[in-house]
């Protein structure tokens, strides 16, 4: 059976909030190392990869591999009943028809309990190759969201150029052009505001802003986001969580005609 307790329901609430507009039905794959999810959006342009490691739960127990087939809209309805600060326990039998969720308030003795029906989901799993990216940019997640939303007001696409001069996000639209350039920057007092650019070779790629803005719904999970680029491969946008857990988004580039 599976029993996994999070100290704060907000972690799962934020993860599901961040991906529910991209993915509707997906398996939560549970094994002794934790709970993982991999799913493509309907148009097969983006891929979501989540790993909540066993260490992120206390306690964590999973005797056999279990796939929890979940409709994320339904899961959202149940998670809405949890306060951010509640402790959240997920429970399931080895061949479950439903997922049991228990929310416990730390402040009082309130315990709420829900059973969510599961579904059989036949999901295609993709092998994601280990990639040495040409450019890795770590920046405040709020900054990345701001850049994406600002540029989306002008255009459907953004071109990301990483060079020794910095990283430039630029777009061209009917009403005009826009560009934001960031350079490496260290804030000793507030490291969450740092911008770090690691570059082994210059990169230039174009992506759909609609998807990037969607990924930015994960900004609540982490102060910083890491974006990794190499020419002619999908962009990786990673929000790191505690205990090596993470939420990653991959986005296929736009390519020349």
């Amino acid at each position: 059976m599976l029993e996994a307790k999070l100290d704060q329901a907000s972690i799962l609430k934020k993860v599901v909030d961040a991906i529910k507009d991209l993915v509707q039905d997906c398996n939560f794959d549970c094994n002794d190392s934790g709970i993982a999810l991999q799913a493509m959006d309907n148009s097969h342009v983006a891929l979501v990869s989540m790993a909540l490691k066993a260490e992120s739960f206390q306690p964590y127990r999973c005797d056999r591999n279990i796939a929890l087939g979940l409709n994320l809209t339904s899961l959202t309805k149940v998670l809405r009943a949890a306060q951010n600060e509640d402790m959240l326990t997920l429970r399931a039998e080895d061949a479950p028809d439903s997922l049991n969720l228990v929310f416990e308030s730390k402040a009082d003795d309130r315990i709420s309990e829900y059973d969510l029906k599961l579904m059989d989901i036949d999901q295609e799993h993709l092998g994601i190759p280990e990639t040495e990216y040409a450019a890795t940019i770590t920046l405040p997640s709020s900054e990345f969201r701001r850049i994406c939303t600002d540029l989306m007001a002008l255009s459907e696409s953004v071109t990301i150029d990483a060079s020794k001069d910095g990283v430039k996000f630029s777009c061209t639209g009917d009403i005009g052009n826009g560009a934001v350039t960031l350079r490496s920057h260290t804030n000793v007092d507030k490291p969450e505001l740092n911008v770090d650019i690691e570059l082994s070779e210059p990169v230039s790629l174009t992506f759909s802003l609609k998807y990037l803005v969607n990924f930015c719904k994960a900004s609540a999970l982490s102060h910083q986001v890491k974006i990794c680029l190499s020419n002619e491969v999908p962009l990786l946008v990673e929000y790191a969580l505690e205990n090596q857990s993470h939420l990653r988004f991959y986005l296929a580039p736009k390519i020349g005609d």
Partner: peptide, 14 residues
């Protein structure tokens, strides 16, 4: 602005 490519072009089915 180019054509949107598909993620399955880069990642293989397991």
């Amino acid at each position: 602005e180019g054509t949107q490519s598909n993620i399955t072009r880069y990642f293989e089915g397991a």
